[in-house]
Structures are given as C-alpha cells and as structure tokens.
Design a protein around this nucleic acid. Sequence first.
DNA 1: TTAATTCCTCAAGTTAACTTGAGCTCAAGT
DNA 2: ACTTGAGCTCAAGTTAACTTGAGGAATTAA
Lengths: 161, 161
Amino acid sequence: MPVKALRKSGLTIGEISDRTGLAPSAIRYYEDQGLVAPLRTASGQRRYDRSDIRRLSFVLIAQGLGFSLGDIKSALAGLPATGPITKSEWSRISRDFRSDLDARIARMEALRDRLDSCIGCGCLSLSSCRLYNPRDRARRRGSGPRYLMGDRASDLVRDTD
Amino acid sequence: MPVKALRKSGLTIGEISDRTGLAPSAIRYYEDQGLVAPLRTASGQRRYDRSDIRRLSFVLIAQGLGFSLGDIKSALAGLPATGPITKSEWSRISRDFRSDLDARIARMEALRDRLDSCIGCGCLSLSSCRLYNPRDRARRRGSGPRYLMGDRASDLVRDTD
DNA sequence: TTAATTCCTCAAGTTAACTTGAGCTCAAGT
DNA sequence: ACTTGAGCTCAAGTTAACTTGAGGAATTAA
C-alpha cells in the first residue's frame, strides 16, 4: 500500500492550541458553547479535524472584531458540525456575515467622520443621528433587563444642550 | 434683572439618564471609573453639566463600537473633568481616536473582503494574514495571563491544513 | 517500566460592566 | 406637614468568556 496512506485519526487539543493560539481551556469552552464538536477517542480524548483550525481561527478573528460567541455561533450555523468545510460553505458564511460587518463598518466610519462636526454640533443628542442605530448590536453584559442603545432615543430628541 | 438669568445649578442624575438613555446606576459606575465627574450639592446629590450629556453620549457610542471603558477613558484624557468642552477639544479627541478607528475599520473590511478567499484558501493560518494584527486591541476578559491575538502567530506559519 | 507530559472533568475564581436591593436621606408636590 | 418619588451608599448578584486548580487517567519519551 502507498507509503502515506494512513493519516492520524485527528489532532489533539494541544495541537489545535498550538496552531490557533487558543488555550486548551478556551477550546474546551468553545465546545461547551457549541462552536466546535471534536470526536473522542475510545479513552475520551478529543480529536479534531484539520478544518477545525480554520473554524476556530474564524472564531478568534470575529471575536477580535467584537462579535460575541453567540453571534459567531449563529454565523456558523448550518455548517457541518464536524468534518471539512467546503469553500462554498465559507462563502455562505461570508455572505451572511457581511451585512453585520457592513453595518459595523458604516457606524465606525460615521463616528470617525463625524466626531468633529457631529459631536461638536450637539447632533449626538438627536435620535436621528446615524451613530445611534437602534437595530444594531444588542450589547448586554451584567444582569437584568437593560435597554439597548437607542431604545430610549425619543428622550434624546430635544437638542438644547 | 433679565427674566431668564438664573439657570439651574445643574442636571440631576435622573435628567442625565433621560437624556442619554443610560441607567442611573451606569452613570454612577462611570463616575467610579473616572469617566465623568459631577459636582455635588450641599446634601450630596450629583449635579451634572450639560456638556456631560455629550461626554456620556460619546462613551455610549464608543462602547457600542467595542471600545472598553478604559480605552474611552484614555481617549477622553486631557479634557477638562468638568465644565463645557470646546469644539477644538472634541477635535483633538477625534484626531487621537481616529487611528484606532481606522485600524478597526481596516480589519473589518479585510475580513469582509477576504472571508471567501482568505478563509477559503487557508490564509487564516498564515501569520502574515492581515486579519491577525498583533498590535491591535488587547482584548482580555476572564482572569490570568492570556496571550493576545497574534502573539503566537509563529505557530501559525505552516499552512498545511 | 518509569517518569514526564498531556488530557479529562468539574468546581470555583476572575474581569468588565453593570444591576439589584437594603436602608436611609432629600426634595417636590399638595 | 406629609407623603411620594429621587438620590445616596454599599454590598452582593449577574453575564460572558475564560482561567485555575484539584484529582485522576492516558500517552509518550527515555
């Protein structure tokens, strides 16, 4: 039989850690959160597919851009939980993710371009200001109900400050 | 004397809350963090300047874009802790903040434009990939030392996945 | 066959950014 | 004068995203 026929059954968590820069504990945590689903050996050790490196790299990057694991899980929804991911599947992710990214980019650009004029002129207290986009990003940390950015924008309509 | 001569001594926390959409508890928290410094009445109640609405709106927006309160505090450093903020002062903030914003925008655009090709082709595992920018954003949550995105990029050089 | 690594699970700790609640004071309306 | 709605402080709880540590099993290197 061909020399290079037998492939290892998968990558260990340590190898994945080395390849992605993620701590093993973080990788296990992502598994708990349903972001990655490695196989197990008979003795219970995790074995990852090579494609999981790519998957986890995506998690890392999207996270660095401020997306929550929940956001990322949604973006990844529909991909096969295990096994290689095709180029067309990544393309779909790309399309779905793009609107999110575009919205964020637009907001950043608006802040960048308007910091002078917008903040300087008091526009920030207008509910119509582009920087307050109620439909974008439901950021929440801490507990209990918290209204989202822009939810009470009606209170901001008066521009007397 | 002129009819409208006497101005109220300042805005209460409730008024600030209504105008910014921030919960009073959040506003007090920001004060603890040094982001705003209201005066106090003889009895100890907080009294805000009108300019604090603008200041807090900036906090809200920057936060929504993923900046930490620490980042924002730095951006705000140098502004007078209390009293009105001039247009030129906001312009300075704008300039200082702009490079941060530009870096983020660039990274988002890179991800947006390269999701297909970059992730699809395995470029994500290259340390040279633009999406891994070691100098950008030291995100940390949780405890203990954690290496930053890109710190171990050398482990990612092999592109065999 | 040790000895050293690496891995496993599970519980508990950590940080940021707040919220909630208790207990009390203050201010505003009638 | 009173009652009710704001405010105040301080301690403790919460969520996300992990880390750390204890106690134990499995792999790998020598």
